[in-house]
């Protein structure tokens, strides 16, 4: 067995907090892009959120977008360069709150790009406020007594929401909270990129990820939170796959 840094990632220390899932997702994307041999064809988009600096880590073209707008930017990029590989990397605030419209419409148009949606159930970059995906009862800086089902509503389930859209080719929810999950996540992300290469249309992989700092948990406890709490609400699995008839 061999395990080393993919070429699509620079050899740099990241700014992420200890135990943050973004690093794992970066590594997986880097590996997938290496394995598909598409590094020089890839154009990534950076979101506003903790992953805004991802261009410091990825060794390919990247455009940093306004908060929530990566799907609009990627739509234009991919339409203009249909032979390139375009992906958005978005947090839950970016994709499922401020950028919900862009995400849904890009998906519904069946834009042929790939979205990696990192769901950490919180606003990481701004210091731990409630996200649309925050669990009921979960404490955040703006739901200090826990998210209230009546006041704030239930968490938004993106895969379930998108699964009714005809334009969508592939939806899968995975996690990076165990090694086994990470391997599954890689398979899903690879398929999402392969779909784009094959011109199948919009693919989104939702990745349940840890944010120990803003959850105010240790990294080990954060892994437990994903496995024991998040997976209960956000059930991992394939939500749509047009390959499976």
């Amino acid at each position: 067995m061999k395990f080393k840094k993919p070429e699509s990632l620079y050899d740099r220390n990241t700014h992420y907090c200890p135990g943050c899932g973004h690093g794992i997702v970066h590594r997986i994307i880097g590996e997938v892009i290496d394995e598909l041999g598409i590094r020089e064809e890839t154009i990534g988009t950076a979101p506003v959120g903790c992953a805004v600096l991802l261009y410091d880590y990825f060794n390919f073209d990247v455009i940093e977008c306004a908060h929530g707008r990566p799907p609009a930017v990627a739509t234009a990029m991919k339409r203009i360069h249909p032979d390139k590989i375009v992906f958005t990397y978005q947090g839950d605030g970016d994709l499922a709150a401020i950028g919900t419209a862009e995400m849904i419409h890009a998906a519904n148009r069946g834009e042929n790009f790939t979205t990696i949606f990192v769901n950490n159930a919180i606003y990481g970059m701004t210091g731990g406020q409630m996200a649309p995906t925050t669990l009921v009862g979960q404490r955040t800086t703006t739901t200090q007594k826990g998210r209230d089902l009546i006041k704030q509503g239930p968490p938004l389930k993106v895969c379930e929401l998108l699964s009714s859209l005809d334009g969508v080719a592939y939806l899968e929810r995975v996690a990076v909270s165990t090694a086994k999950d990470s391997m599954k996540a890689k398979k899903a992300i690879k398929k999402a990129f392969q779909n784009q290469i094959d011109g199948k249309g919009y693919s989104l992989v939702e990745v349940l990820s840890m944010c120990p700092t803003d959850w105010k948990l240790s990294p080990a406890q954060a892994v437990g939170f994903v496995n024991d709490e998040m997976k209960k609400v956000f059930k991992p699995g394939v939500y749509k796959d047009t390959d499976v008839k």
Binding site: K4, K5, G19, R27, V176
Partner: peptide
Amino acid sequence: TGCALCCQMCPDMAIQIEDE
């Protein structure tokens, strides 16, 4: 054993395993 499960979970790419 070089199973690399640790690498799968490392958010910082701090662990590498060379070819056996």
